[in-house]
Write a protein that binds this DNA or RNA. Structure first.
Lengths: 151, 151
DNA sequence: CCAGAAAACTTGACTCGTTCAAGAAAAGGG
DNA sequence: CCCTTTTCTTGAACGAGTCAAGTTTTCTGG
């Protein structure tokens, strides 16, 4: 899901009943190029190639792509929304408590892990999302430096 | 962790090196009384008994209590921060996609579930947080009504 | 290939949860 | 009971995200 070319992006859009526009292609490229990027970063990346795209367009596009399942939105506590192209493979994320870096983690329990909650209090569950918290390699090796950024 | 009386709240605060103040006791009572309440709800509950408490005080108190581990902060994607008294027992949450309701779920896998990520990309993991998504009983039985609120 | 309808985009104002900053008030050790 | 430190009040500010009105673009169907 990372070796998608331009033509495939078009097919994905059409398959989702979405019109093919320059902003949408630019957003897809940006998300492919910057996994886990927030809206601001996507906007910046988009404007690098399409300088006239508005911030609202990026919000709209990310929303439409998320709704149709072409991108996945994640939002760890305390973070703004982040997006990724890798979709439909039930993977999870590790978030660094110090610098906020996000990385993918394949769940050891196979697909749809932990989806069997013992007692869901009557809820009809359709997804189990796992977020691991800890320290990224560089923050772990630089203990008390209190590095902070947003990726 | 739900049958905590006033004296215990004081002990908890002192044990965490926090001064015992009326706003703090009121916040603890509010969180006990309204599990998963957001800051606004806590503020309202606090003001019901202590009308002069400022919103900033509630933010400060919730922050201090969270830092010292007396309350737990959760923040499902798309939601504002929510707080609960139940702490240190590694339980998880189900969130209703329709109305945002939150309920506790004891993990079937025992304590520290899924904490064994296959490959964490070099991260040092200290917690695994599981969020289940679905529909609460009342939204599940009222399919397309698109109820929306924030609890 | 062109026109028309619907979808998508631009612009700009605005909402709301949360944070920042400075000074006043309370807690609790000595 | 006083002093130092922590905590609280007040009020302004920030920023991600949303709303709304009007314009532009896509793409279907003739």
């Amino acid at each position: 899901m990372d070796d998608i070319d331009e033509a495939t992006f078009e097919h994905l859009l059409r398959g989702a009943d979405l019109r093919v526009t320059r902003p949408r292609l630019a957003v897809l490229r940006a998300v492919r190029r910057h996994p886990h990027a927030d809206t601001g970063s996507v906007l910046a990346a988009v404007r690098a190639e399409e300088p006239t795209v508005s911030h609202q367009a990026v919000y709209d596009v990310l929303g439409a792509l998320t709704d149709s399942g072409l991108v996945r939105r994640i939002q760890p506590a305390g973070s703004v929304a982040r997006y990724e192209l890798r979709v439909g493979d039930n993977h999870h994320h590790v978030v660094c408590r110090s610098c906020g870096a996000v990385a993918d983690v394949d769940c050891a329990v196979g697909h749809t892990p932990c989806l069997t909650a013992s007692d869901a209090g009557g809820f009809v569950i359709d997804e189990a999302e796992v977020t691991y918290w800890g320290l990224c390699p560089s923050c772990a090796s630089r203990p008390t430096t209190s590095t902070d950024s947003s990726n």
